[in-house]
């Protein structure tokens, strides 16, 4: 059992949990993920490590409540326990030797982009950060990102923070103005990572994306997380989750993500029904 020592509500749909997991904390690096399960009947879901504290022995996860498991996870409070918490899984990001980087986070992806920006900053790189959200109420980690970036650009789809547009609009402008980077890191919805990769390819900027496909074990055993990269089949759990954005077959990844959409919807609806029952009961 893994105890929750801190909980924060970052926006109405996004929560942060700091979890006691000393073994994981000892080895965790940016780019890696954990797999958790919260009940005997629960599924195993992968979540990227948002932060870790080796001394305290804690690992922080940030997640959006999109389905039954993440909703139930969001209902846990400080002092509650997570049943299973395995990691750190996947390969750590290679950030050494980068002088100037642009880190792009879309929505919840911002939470995963943060440890990468932080690590780059600690390694002495100059870091521009671009984040995008649907509206200003959903903006995440702006304070934290400000501390680790040279420049922070925050866009919203509806312009409610006074800066309307997509992350790619900002990136395009920066590139057109002559900014050049050794590395671009894009983390967010598949379509966003695809658009960023298409743009950076024109400028020949090495781009790393973080894939988050459906998976069960996270150790290379099921192969459910297959991603085609440069024409070769890779397992995101052990070969990734970071891949070269210019090589990833995003259209296939988008399709594969829809594999259990009907079941995910059904689980969520039944979950909400049961909750309603309890509340009204």
């Amino acid at each position: 059992m893994y105890k929750i020592v801190r909980k924060e509500v970052l926006n109405p749909a996004v929560k942060l949990l700091e979890v006691e997991a000393p073994y994981v904390a000892r080895k965790a690096e940016p780019g890696q993920f954990i797999i958790l399960r919260i009940s005997e009947e629960g599924e195993r879901i992968p979540l990227t490590i948002a932060d870790y504290d080796r001394e305290k022995g804690t690992v922080t996860i940030i997640f959006q409540e999109v389905g039954k498991t993440t909703s139930m996870l969001g209902m846990l409070e400080e002092g509650d326990c997570i049943l299973d918490f395995a990691g750190p899984l996947g390969k750590a990001s290679h950030l050494e030797g980068v002088r100037k980087a642009v880190v792009i986070g879309g929505g919840l992806g911002t939470a995963i982009a943060y440890p990468q920006a932080k690590k780059l900053h600690e390694l002495g790189a100059e870091v521009d950060v671009i984040t995008g959200f649907r509206n200003s109420g959903l903006i995440l980690l702006s304070k934290e990102l400000k501390q680790v970036s040279s420049r922070l650009f925050i866009t919203t789809d509806d312009g409610s923070n006074g800066n309307k547009g997509f992350v790619t609009d900002v990136l395009k402008k920066l590139l057109e103005e002559g900014n050049r980077y050794d590395l671009a890191i894009a983390i967010g919805p598949l379509i966003m990572m695809k658009m960023v990769s298409l743009l950076t390819k024109e400028y020949g900027i090495k781009t790393v994306v973080s894939m988050n496909p459906v998976m069960i074990d996270g150790t290379g055993m099921c192969g459910g997380c297959r991603v085609t990269v440069g024409g070769k089949v890779k397992f995101a759990c052990v070969d990734g989750p970071d891949f070269d954005g210019h090589e990833v077959d995003f259209d296939e990844a988008i399709r594969r993500q829809a594999m259990y959409r009907a079941q995910e919807k059904r689980s969520m609806e039944e979950h909400v029904c049961r909750l309603g029952g309890v509340r009204n009961g």
């Binding site: 009947e41 459910g224 259990y260 079941q263 689980s267």
Partner: peptide
Amino acid sequence: SANEFLTRVNLMKAYKYPEYDTPVS
């Protein structure tokens, strides 16, 4: 893969979905 299919069904008990959360198609 047979591994994924069997793991969903046996370990995660997808044959009891939706009582258990893991689906199999």
